[in-house]
Amino acid sequence: MKPSLKTIALLSTALLSACTSTEDKVNDLLQRHMDAFVFVEGGSFMMGNPGGWSVRRDSLPAHKVMLDSFSIQKYEVTQGDMDLFMEVTGYASSDESYDRTKEQYPNRFMSKLPAVGSWIDAQAFCQWLGKISNRPIDLPTEAQWEYAARSRGQVLRYATDTGEAIEGVNMAAASKGGFTDPTALPLPPGSFPPNPLGLYDMSGNASEWVLDNYQPDYYENSPELNPQGPEKAKTSGLKSGPIDHHKVARGGRFYDFWGNTTVSRLDHPKRLMWLDAGFRCLLHTKNAAIQAQDKKKQPYY
């Protein structure tokens, strides 16, 4: 039986409504994210561990770095926005266990919490944001992240409003179960006061993926001007399985109060997701005026 004209009209209206709703959601996401970028004036600073805060050898030596200006987001990207990105683009996580883990730990995947994903997933989101905004957006480099967390390179141990950490006041309290607490969760981005640049949660919420490959001795060899990380990444994996290339994550973790300093460095295989990791995006402002000349709308799908 052929559908009636009324049925066809109703289906068409429903499809149009669904498409409009999706586009509205993407436009809202785009507006929120672009409004969240904070300009950071470039300059020089001592990157690494100038205050002697960390016992990790890979945070030494402190070394001079000079950076161009850039803009970085106030907040960590949320799971809700990651879900929308995956929905409208059909993107699938690089980690084959993503869906299974999401079912196993639903509380960690709540829409208001920092997004969960691999380094590959995080970069895919930021580059998609760049595509639909027609702006040069990606993950921040490790140097850019640390410079911003330390409010343009000041000698501050924590990326809080005061540079100090007070449990429950400007950073989440220590998890009673520490690393083994299965109920520990990050908080919604923006739960505590920002650092002096207006950036939230760069200490003590989710550790954050950055652009750089990881090598434990990179600080001994880092160039001074706009370092991009080592050319080759540390690798791991069994000979019979895939080789994993490691990327850097910065900023500590929600269950590790005293380890949440601005020099805290972690390394993870880039294709695997981590429940304690999140990310925020960076806008390259050096050529922003040129980029702004071309405002042609990019497709969402």
Rank of each mutant, 00 (worst) to 15 (best):
S151P: 05
L67S: 00
L199T: 07
T235H: 05
A233M: 06
S240T: 14
S17V: 13
A165R: 15
W258H: 14
Q144C: 08
R108I: 13
T285H: 06
G278C: 07
S97A: 13
G43I: 02
L266N: 08
A289S: 13
T78E: 12
G130I: 07
Y255D: 15
P61V: 07
G198E: 09
P189D: 10
E164M: 13
Q104N: 09
S236W: 09
K112I: 04
E87F: 08
E103V: 11
P269Y: 01
G241H: 09
D256T: 06
D83H: 06
A184G: 12
W258K: 13
D99W: 06
L84V: 04
D217G: 07
G252S: 09
F125V: 07
D81R: 06
V155A: 13
S44R: 00
V210Y: 04
P182L: 08
S133N: 12
S71E: 14
G259N: 08
P193H: 14
Y214P: 03
P189S: 12
F37C: 07
H245Y: 15
F257A: 11
D99S: 15
F45S: 02
F125P: 03
Y218T: 01
A36R: 02
D58T: 00
K102N: 04
A233I: 04
P136C: 05
F257M: 11
K6W: 06
P188F: 05
